[in-house]
Write a protein that binds this DNA or RNA. Structure first.
Length: 150
DNA sequence: ATTCTAACA
DNA sequence: TGTTAGCA
C-alpha cells in the first residue's frame, strides 16, 4: 500500500465539495425524477455544472443535492413547488453556515495516552487551549479541553 | 449504459 | 409530470 499523508486524507474526508453527481444518481439519491430535475433547472430553481467529459451531461454538486432533497421534503409535505423552493431558500443559509463550520471542524487525529483523539481546533480566542473529542466503546462522544502543546 | 432534447397513442 | 423517440 502506498504511503498516504494523514493530513491530506483528512482534508478530503470532510470536504464534500469534491462529490459530484450525474442526473441519474441524484435522482436515485433524492427520489426526484430526472424529468423534474431538468424542469427545475429550466426554471432556475437549481443549477448544474454542465459538460461531463465526452457527453454534455449535467453534473450536480453536494450543495445542489441538499437543495433538491429539501425541496423534495417540502413537496412531500404538501407544499407547491414554488412554496417548497421558497421555504428551502429560507433555511439554506443555515445549511451553508453549518456546512462551513463542520467542514473546518476536524483538524487532525492524534493518539493521546493510548486513546484516539480528534482535534477540533483551538477552543479559546487566546489560543491557549484546544478542543478534542474521543469516542468510547458505547460510541458515546466525550469532549476534552486541553492546554496547547500538552 | 446513460444522458440529451423535443414532443405527445 | 410521465414517457416516449432518436441521438450522441
Amino acid at each position: 500500500m502506498a504511503y498516504v499523508d494523514k493530513r491530506k486524507v483528512l482534508e478530503n474526508v470532510f470536504k464534500p465539495d469534491i462529490f459530484k453527481f450525474r442526473i441519474g444518481e441524484l435522482s436515485q439519491m433524492t427520489g426526484v425524477s430526472t424529468r423534474q430535475l431538468r424542469y427545475w433547472e429550466s426554471k432556475d430553481i437549481i443549477q448544474s455544472l454542465h459538460r461531463d467529459g465526452t457527453q454534455d451531461a449535467r453534473v450536480y454538486d453536494y450543495e445542489t443535492f441538499h437543495k433538491v432533497q429539501a425541496i423534495k421534503y417540502f413537496l412531500d409535505e404538501g407544499y407547491t413547488l414554488r412554496a417548497s423552493v421558497q421555504r428551502t431558500n429560507e433555511i439554506f443559509d443555515l445549511f451553508k453556515k453549518t456546512h462551513a463550520i463542520i467542514g473546518n471542524a476536524v483538524r487532525g487525529i492524534e493518539e493521546i495516552n493510548g486513546e484516539t483523539m480528534v482535534d477540533l481546533g483551538v477552543f479559546d480566542e487566546e489560543q491557549q487551549t484546544r478542543l478534542w473529542a474521543s469516542i468510547d466503546d458505547e460510541k458515546k462522544v466525550h469532549y476534552h479541553v486541553r492546554a496547547e502543546g500538552e
